[in-house]
């Protein structure tokens, strides 16, 4: 499936597939494997019996207990990252049939409804592979540090309530705060490219998730005390100017976070910030 096709494989199609799913069938899992950094990649296929409610995780679990390929070759269990299995921790993100998403919420009925259908699993391509489907997303978290993604409280002692907030403003912030750092937006972004050299992380494109998180903290009464620092980063190298406006990020976000709105909002703040800096003689 081409990238464009993959993105158009939408909810309606998946719903239709779910309706025509055949009970008691087998599905072929074609998995891109790699034993470790610098090792060659290879494809292995597994024939997996599909039971009601099966998802990619239950299928990988089945393979772990029965690690034999379709050609009868005994192999090792597939390595992948996962934790909550409720699409709320972000760990189990991978590229499934060409599209990045969480594997726990990926129901086989929606993708491979018929006997012998194929599911293709690959690791995310924008992060270094650790082994098989498990990638190292340390850079993603590093980018949250770059934007000082926190509220600078005075300390954990008892100092009374936080700032009052309107109902609507909370609803807006809550939407942004659901970002689970899964990296889908980065995988889909043409500007965010794989960078294995850690020393270049702080000057490489920061990505939609961090831009949106910067907005989230700028919107908090205490959080905005660091707005100027955040904007220094975001107008700098690897900041908002590197965004190519492809708008893929918002299409793949599993939490429906309005990432392009956040990019727009930070873009406007960046303009104001640049003016301020100019008049303060900083630039």
């Amino acid at each position: 499936m081409s990238e464009a096709e993959a993105y158009s494989f939408d909810a309606d199609m998946r719903k239709a597939n779910r309706k025509k799913a055949v009970a008691e069938r087998s599905v072929i899992f074609k998995i891109k494997r790699c034993d470790g950094p610098g090792k060659p990649t290879r494809w292995e296929s597994f024939k997996v019996p599909i039971k009601e409610g099966a998802n990619v995780i239950s299928s990988l679990n089945w393979i772990a207990a029965n690690p034999v390929t379709t050609s009868g070759q005994k192999t090792t269990p597939v390595v992948w990252d996962s934790n909550c299995l409720e699409e709320v921790c972000g760990a189990c993100t991978m590229v499934i049939n060409g599209r990045v998403r969480q594997s726990c919420s990926c129901l086989i009925d929606e993708y491979a409804p018929l006997e012998g259908d194929t599911m293709t699993l690959e690791p995310m391509s924008k992060f270094p592979v650790i082994r098989d489907l498990w990638v190292d997303r340390a850079r993603l978290f590093n980018n949250l540090t770059r934007v000082k993604g926190w509220v600078p409280i005075d300390g954990t002692y008892n100092l009374g309530a936080g700032p009052k907030e309107s109902h609507d403003h909370q609803q807006m912030r809550y939407t942004l705060s659901e970002c689970m750092s899964c990296g889908c937006c980065l995988e889909a972004c043409p500007q965010f490219t794989k960078e294995e050299d850690e020393s270049k992380w702080d000057t490489s494109f920061i990505g939609a998730h961090a831009i949106s998180q910067a907005r989230y903290f700028n919107e908090h009464e205490t959080g905005k005390k660091l707005k100027s620092d955040r904007m220094d980063t975001l107008v700098g190298e690897g900041g908002i100017n590197d965004c190519g406006n492809a708008q893929n990020c918002v299409k793949v976000c599993p939490k429906g976070i309005p990432l392009t709105e956040s990019i727009g909002a930070i873009g406007r703040s960046a303009t104001v910030h640049a003016f301020k800096q100019f008049f303060q003689g900083k630039k």
Partner: peptide, 14 residues
């Protein structure tokens, strides 16, 4: 109160 100060988006009344 502390979590509120840390910025947790607790649901709000009108």
């Amino acid at each position: 109160d502390l979590l509120d100060r840390m910025g947790v988006p607790f649901n709000r009344s009108h």
